[in-house]
Design a protein around this nucleic acid. Structure first.
Lengths: 334, 334
DNA sequence: CTGTTAGCGCTTTCAT
DNA sequence: ATGAAAGCGCTAACAG
């Protein structure tokens, strides 16, 4: 692998001049510029990043720690974050905590050791001490989607209250009174916020307060199956269900499908998170659009603000409700 | 940020001893071990990765360059690769080329400059020269899912032929003779392999060779919509369709759904790639299971072999066919 | 087992 | 505008 020294030698200039040409940091003569560029080209020179980082004490790399890369919400968020970062001259290093606090802690250490310039994180039951010590040691931090109590970090999150309200209002308007809720883990901010919103708005609207209508999962598919089964087994008779996350909605659908074979009746599904296949099932699933793209984009913008010393603001991103009740009830291939 | 020098000073030992304790590279006395560990703890010391990499000329980081992170196939592959890498002491840096050759080239450069220890890549219309020069400059390379002609790199891919055969045989057995094919881009190896397999096996089975039954997309949803629309507009009358990729299957479903409102009739969908919601649509979509987890795992294993100087073998991962024809035709909420 | 020291490849003074 | 030289934080080779 060619080093800058090789390039300088081939170009017949000093190491310093080669560096100046290559990084464009300062004025250089057209002559040396041409020769250095040619030499670099010829040697297929690619600067050694670690050496560069060591010297400059910055890496131009942002970390993004998501809680589950297989969750479409996060893969869309990651995609948006990456685009925005690239636009601003940063590369994104993506890591997946897999909804596991220990793995999250491990990646946090890895990122810190890589000396990334800043970190975007969707925290779970995060170790508050670790997060604090990272922040205090000067690592710019921004929360996306989720937040953590007891630490003040700019946060880009969804307007969970608005989202739940739109879903319940819509269900209420369609005549539902027995509405089940499959919530997320209360330890995660999105889990608790959506739950709190559900309880309050349910009461505002005068929906059934039967506690058997409520169950909680962990934002993954299988837990959605189990939570929905639990509700059905409890003796409650929901006519509709609000699922707090897209992956759990899949699980809810599976659980209801098992039941439908046993003629339980129709339960209308509404989902927090709109997945692209919802229009293909029958009846189509209406959903709260949770704007992962905006969250990813704003998250990077806020993080770059912090990195460059500007004040960064927290944001609540608006949701919108996608009403599919009017769409044809035909299935994909029917 | 504390350096190893600070740790050594606080522990009252030399820099070298501190380094030895911290990296466990060589024998140290219990006494210094205790003092260094305590000092590191107290100072919240986290080694400077770039400095370490510069000196050791390795990073313990693997790159994974996928073509579309929002494609569930790749997010599953990434997830599996990450787990396997972690198990072997490596961290994965994930990047997304977004089915775009220019972006792929840019990330290739970024990875090269970061001096990652090895790269797992799902290549698209890759610049052969660039790939070759990277390989020749000593970067361990392994292809996953896709390969590129003209460069010899260990490759972990799906048995596309077997997959297509199982799908067409199944359709044939169900009486279909007019089977449409929505293929991927012929420039990508998976696109061309699945297409070639389709043509050959179609003829073997005596299915209709009407050229209007065939259209191509780019492995993304929207292109699936367009390809299917094109087939339907051509005047061909397929009774079934094989889609070459999960995302395009979604598009195919959308296109058929538009049509079904106009009473075109039933077209049975079969998908290369099994997505988790296929059991929820009506009728459920049967599919070729394309084992992203195995590909990711084997890919990392092969890459680590190359890195550590062992010979690495290419693999064709077996597919299996998921027959959902017997499942209840009830929809998600019905 | 430990201290000392060279040097990884680069950027950035400091002179000139 | 350029060359010489220092030094980022770390590991490894060497001497003891």
């Amino acid at each position: 692998m060619a080093t800058i020294k090789d390039v300088a030698a081939l170009a017949g200039v000093s190491l310093g001049t080669a560096s100046r040409v290559l990084s464009g940091s300062s004025q250089t003569s057209p002559d040396s510029r041409a020769r250095v560029t040619a030499a670099a080209e010829q040697l297929n020179y690619i600067a050694n990043g670690p050496a560069r980082s060591l010297r400059r004490s910055r890496t131009d790399v942002l970390g993004l720690l998501v809680s589950d890369i297989r969750n479409p919400f996060f893969s869309e968020l990651a995609h948006a974050a990456e685009r925005e970062a690239q636009r601003r001259g940063y590369t994104v290093l993506l890591a997946n905590a897999d909804e596991d606090a220990a793995q999250e802690a491990a990646y946090l250490r890895t990122f810190a050791s890589q000396r990334i310039d800043g970190l975007l994180i969707a925290p779970q039951g995060s170790d508050l001490t670790q997060l604090r010590s990272m922040r205090d040691s000067g690592l710019p931090l921004v929360f996306v989607d989720r937040s953590v109590d007891g630490i003040d970090v700019p946060t880009i999150s969804t307007d969970n209250d608005e989202g739940v309200r739109s879903a319940l209002t819509w269900l209420h308007g369609r005549g539902h009174r027995e509405v089940a809720f499959v919530g997320g883990p209360p330890a995660v901010s999105t889990g608790s916020e959506r739950r709190t919103a559900f309880l309050r708005i349910r009461d505002e609207l005068g929906l059934s307060a039967d506690p058997r209508l409520i169950a909680h999962g962990d934002f993954r598919t299988e837990s959605g199956v189990e939570a929905m089964r639990a509700v059905l087994a409890s003796g409650a008779r929901p006519t509709a269900v609000l699922s707090a996350d897209g992956l759990m909605t899949l699980g809810v659908g599976r659980a209801l499908r098992e039941e439908s074979a046993r003629q339980l009746g129709v339960v209308e599904i509404v989902s927090f998170d709109d997945l692209d296949w919802f229009s293909l099932v029958s009846p189509p699933i209406s959903a709260v659009r949770n704007d992962a793209t905006a969250i990813g984009r704003l998250g990077v913008a806020a993080l770059v603000d912090v990195i460059e010393g500007r004040p960064a603001a927290s944001h609540r991103v608006a949701t919108s409700f996608v009403d599919r009740s009017a769409e044809a009830a035909a299935g994909a291939g029917a």
